[in-house]
Design a protein around this nucleic acid. Sequence first.
DNA 1: ACCCGCATGTAAGTCGTTACATGATTCT
DNA 2: AGAATCATGTAACGACTTACATGCGGGT
Lengths: 183, 183
Amino acid sequence: MNTLDYAILGLLARNPQSGYDLTQAMKHTIAFFWLAHHSTIYPELRRLEHADLVTHEVVKQQERPDKKVYTLTAAGREALRRWVAEPTPLPSERDELMLKAFSAWLADPAEAAEMFRARERGHRQRLARYEQIRAEMEAEGGEELSRVDSPRFASYATLRRGIEYERGYAEWCAWMAATLERG
Amino acid sequence: MNTLDYAILGLLARNPQSGYDLTQAMKHTIAFFWLAHHSTIYPELRRLEHADLVTHEVVKQQERPDKKVYTLTAAGREALRRWVAEPTPLPSERDELMLKAFSAWLADPAEAAEMFRARERGHRQRLARYEQIRAEMEAEGGEELSRVDSPRFASYATLRRGIEYERGYAEWCAWMAATLERG
DNA sequence: ACCCGCATGTAAGTCGTTACATGATTCT
DNA sequence: AGAATCATGTAACGACTTACATGCGGGT
């Protein structure tokens, strides 16, 4: 069982869906903390089904191709539950931008500053998107957001981290660019 | 040229050193944003030498095995310089803890809270280490830390981001754990 | 005697990305 | 007519992790 498996199980625990839907969800809903391509997802679903953690049924659609809708089994839900509470060691990060900062003393300061500014814009864009989603969730969600057994609470929790992450990264980029521009 | 190559070049730009030294530096100095095992580094050094970005000379030591000390070539330094200023697209993150948060609504709140508390402790430990290094750098470094063409400035810059990253992550873990403990 | 640090390598297996491949329907 | 979306797959390649492999010197 690799981590991708739990990403898939975690999405299926919320709604039964197809490999295509899972791919879209990774791209749009949970892209902040997980991403996988369809070429990884389809074979993985077959392995999960072989391990009896998911099952599928073929759903025929008119005016769309048929799709295989996957559902969590009881064993799948239990595996996911257990995994969540397991200790999670600090991962070894790999951050290309930090690596560039580490060698930024070699570069032309103005050129390097512009590169960091570009990244700052990227993070600010994401930040704006996340803050909008947060506002929507808080407007609709209300009290459900504080019920720790609701999926909406869990989504809200990850969103909070996403917002602080993007804000912190954008601010660091701004500091770095400003320092290089002065220097 | 992959990103690891630039991690190696970035370390060699500061000091000529052996594959072993590079491995240690990844584990201890730049582990916050890059890590590689010796089994990846040794073959990579040969490829870099083949591409004329580094050279090596064998240094004989008494009471220690001989070592191959690698040095940047002019071409290597130039490649590194150019890479630093290139645009750096927002990467797709993969964060196992966020994935657990996303499915935390299924778990026992007390057990999950303890898992997040454990991670909080991990981040606070790193934070304390980084803050100590920062204090040391600021005490010794003085004005060099603001000279953007000095390696110490670059190290200081990455450290600043590391500190804010760990602080932000620890605080989020604390919030998550507290929320689960209440719920 | 045994383990740890220094020092360098190879090999097997896993994981992920990019590209190849197909085919229907809807929108422009 | 052509591009985009829905839908599912395979294949080639590259990167990374873990384990295997060797050997000396110093400390317990």
